[in-house]
């Protein structure tokens, strides 16, 4: 059974009077433990697709009905709280622009996911454990010496490592990465991709969207998003 399987995903943006169809019935299926790359030109709708898979956004209704199945659960049409829960526990996001909270330290940024997932009492009760886990993750991505730094005091590569650690904090079965090396130089980007490969070796399911062929090469399987539809590479 695939970890996540989507079908008939359509998304049309309305700009003034003009409808801009971005996704025109996308189909995708990702098995557990797979490392999938989705290649597409800029503006082809990669981010849009990733947001749908991560339940940050909802696909357009229509016929045939869109569907996003996670394990054996349909996500389309589910309540907001179910989707919040899904994002908290099942998905880890990595973005092109890192999206760390500037007021928090590296460690706090990583802990944030656990705080949201656990709620106040449970988090406080096992705070030390969470801190240990977050520290481990940061050490794993090579940021053990940057725990108390603010994002502005980190380099781009370091920020993306922190973002990666944050995505892994709640041990999500699915990691969704949007152009994770888009803002980094080749060498730094390669190091980030090494981390993805390592995660993949340890069994992590990863979906990366990118326009960069080099990034896609790291993946087990590459798909192309062309004209709003998924094409095998």
């Amino acid at each position: 059974m695939p970890l996540i399987a989507a079908a008939n995903l359509r998304k049309t943006y309305r700009l003034g009077r003009v409808d801009v169809p971005v996704l025109r019935g996308v189909e995708i299926s990702v098995e557990p433990g797979e490392f999938v790359a989705i290649l597409g030109a800029s503006g082809s709708g990669k981010s849009t697709l990733l947001h749908l898979l991560g339940a940050l956004d909802r696909p357009d209704r229509g016929d045939p009905a869109p569907s996003i199945r996670y394990r054996d659960e349909e996500l389309v049409g589910r309540s907001a709280s179910t989707l919040d829960q899904y994002r908290t526990t099942q998905v880890g996001f990595v973005f092109q622009f890192y999206h760390l909270l500037p007021e928090l330290t590296t460690l706090e940024n990583v802990l944030l996911g656990a705080m949201i997932a656990q709620g106040r009492l449970r988090f406080t009760a096992s705070r030390a454990e969470h801190v240990r886990h977050a520290t481990n993750l940061l050490e794993r991505v090579g940021l053990g010496h940057r725990l108390r730094h603010r994002p502005t005091e980190l380099s781009g590569g370091e920020r993306q490592r922190a973002a990666l650690a944050r995505a892994l904090m709640n041990a999500p079965p699915l990691v969704l990465a949007d152009e994770p090396t888009g803002n980094l130089d080749r060498v730094t980007g390669a190091k980030i991709l090494d981390l993805f490969s390592e995660m993949h070796r340890q069994g992590q399911t990863i979906v990366v969207v990118t326009h960069d062929e080099a990034t896609a090469e790291r993946a087990q399987r590459v798909l192309r998003l062309v004209d709003g539809q998924m094409v095998k590479a």
Partner: peptide, 16 residues
């Protein structure tokens, strides 16, 4: 705004 988006991506609810 961006922080709010990040929190939502991390699973924070609207009411949260």
């Amino acid at each position: 705004t961006k922080d709010i988006g990040i929190l939502r991506a991390l699973g924070a609810s609207r009411s949260g």
